[in-house]
Design a protein around this nucleic acid. Sequence first.
DNA 1: ACTGGCACTCGTCAACCCTGAGTGCCAGTT
DNA 2: AACTGGCACTCAGGGTTGACGAGTGCCAGT
Lengths: 338, 338
Amino acid sequence: MLSERRLEVLRAIVQDYVGTEEPVGSKALTERHDLRVSPATVRNDMAALEDEGYIAQPHTSAGRVPTDKGYRLFVDKLADIKPLSSPERRAIQSFLDSAVDLDDVVGRTVRLLAQLTRQVAVVQYPSLSRSTVRHVELLSLAPARVMLVLITDTGRVEQRVVDCPAPFGDNSLADLRARLNAKVAGERFTEVPRLVQDLPESFDADDRGLVQTVLSTLLETLVEETEERLMIGGTANLTRFGHDFPLTIRPVLEALEEQVVLLKLMGEAGDPEMTVRIGRENAHEGLTSTSIVTVGYGSGDEAVAKLGVVGPTRMDYPGTMGAVRAVARYVGQILAEK
Amino acid sequence: MLSERRLEVLRAIVQDYVGTEEPVGSKALTERHDLRVSPATVRNDMAALEDEGYIAQPHTSAGRVPTDKGYRLFVDKLADIKPLSSPERRAIQSFLDSAVDLDDVVGRTVRLLAQLTRQVAVVQYPSLSRSTVRHVELLSLAPARVMLVLITDTGRVEQRVVDCPAPFGDNSLADLRARLNAKVAGERFTEVPRLVQDLPESFDADDRGLVQTVLSTLLETLVEETEERLMIGGTANLTRFGHDFPLTIRPVLEALEEQVVLLKLMGEAGDPEMTVRIGRENAHEGLTSTSIVTVGYGSGDEAVAKLGVVGPTRMDYPGTMGAVRAVARYVGQILAEK
DNA sequence: ACTGGCACTCGTCAACCCTGAGTGCCAGTT
DNA sequence: AACTGGCACTCAGGGTTGACGAGTGCCAGT
């Protein structure tokens, strides 16, 4: 087990390295932190920390740099989440308050997060998988053409054009609309297939075609929309990554464009409270030198989606975590109000 | 006026420089192109081209590099748009054909363009300013709450929640919906304000509040939606920009996130056919070393929006222009089918 | 258990030189 | 008049060298 002081040394190394971006040596450490021991002692501690795999030397005769394992320990045991200052909190609130619709909320959130953390921000659209149907609208566009509009309780709207096998009357459509809504309004997505199962049978044979087609499109839409989308911002902050970046930045940009990858990573982050994935903990090629901080957010008590930031493993974890948590809370509030 | 051969020399310089990314000298030119004159002659021509401002030397004793003015001449007079190969065309078509909705079309287009040109692709969502209202739907969410859904002929759907000053009956709402649609369905956005002007007067005093609120929200939505959105992809290609890029890439990423800027630039490109803006012709700080190729696309004959790519001034203009034009055509087709 | 001292390792930086590509100019040729 | 070959000159880039200094591990001493 590591002694109290060695942990202190590790914390100091992480803090210094995050600040300066340069390997930190024993002498500099004792000067900048009140460790009450000499550089030589620190060197011994560092050797021990290196043996345990918490820090490493880029090359002989250079200072030490934290490893993924070192950051992990730092995040788990040594760091406190740093709350935002109250001016910052006020700014967040007023910025988010002036959003007009869901897209705007997400857009503002992403910009806000990017600005606060000076990193790449990722915000998942409120998930539909746990959400409920507010209303299904059917509009007749042409004799055999219907537009299906699905409205969810999170304020999202999706539409599909449905081509029917045969023309239908306006009455049939109104009838279907009424009965369909009676069944599914207020219900969860996952319940819908079961609820509409026997709906076709209750219609005249003439209208079965219409009903079938509309229903299958509805179910399709529900499935598709359960695959969430996300919004990304602050990619310009990638340029602060390091000096070597041609090689670093490219795979990250690629990974960010592969929304599937990001969604998977965000989905994997189990804990709805707050998760930090460091370096190689991210099971993706291009992101092995980045850390991802995510947290769930939701309109009520229940988390409906996640948001977070992607940055270099060498990031200010306490500050980033504080910003992410604060933003998630305010977004939750905003969504609950709408 | 420049002689025929000097233009030929300029063309050769542009082609070589685009290929090698290195300043091109007189000797290399005569070796790689069939100019039928000696390097010394080419040197004289180069000196003349330099005097006219078409090429420049990065430093003494280096080869020549085209200037913005040089590229301009190249694009205007010396280059032909290079058509895509037919396998490429087939690939485009089949990739776009499998899109399910408008978002998907735009998303696929952006990925396609980025891949074809190996540059950053920008696609503007079909503009609403020239489009027409297909249908306005009003849904009662709560006694004094309405959801307004606007559906356009380009397949786009926008919604707003409207809080009314007083509760209203379902009949009033249905009545409003019917009368509103009778007025505006099929009409252009720009016509709507005029058309609904006298609508409130034709309602009972009880319902005026409802009507007023709904109408003002509708008009607001129309205005907001006329400000178009866009989608960006292929930012990872920025890393192929040059060797010096920390400084080059950052402002470009920033500019790309400022959608307002991009929309303005795309809007300025007057010619709906195809426009190329080279280097400093782009009136924006961060984009002075990029060129932007845009073209309008539309579902019918009429251009509804633009798409294009952003790349280094040193880009393969004929190829890029070919790809942009081809993609625009196919997207137009797809949109017309829907 | 900590500290001071010492020898050793390397990466960084600046100075330096050399090479080769490219130029401009000029006199000679067609 | 237009082109060419030759020549002297310039200069960026790459490789080498050597001093410097930050950092290390080890060990004997407190």
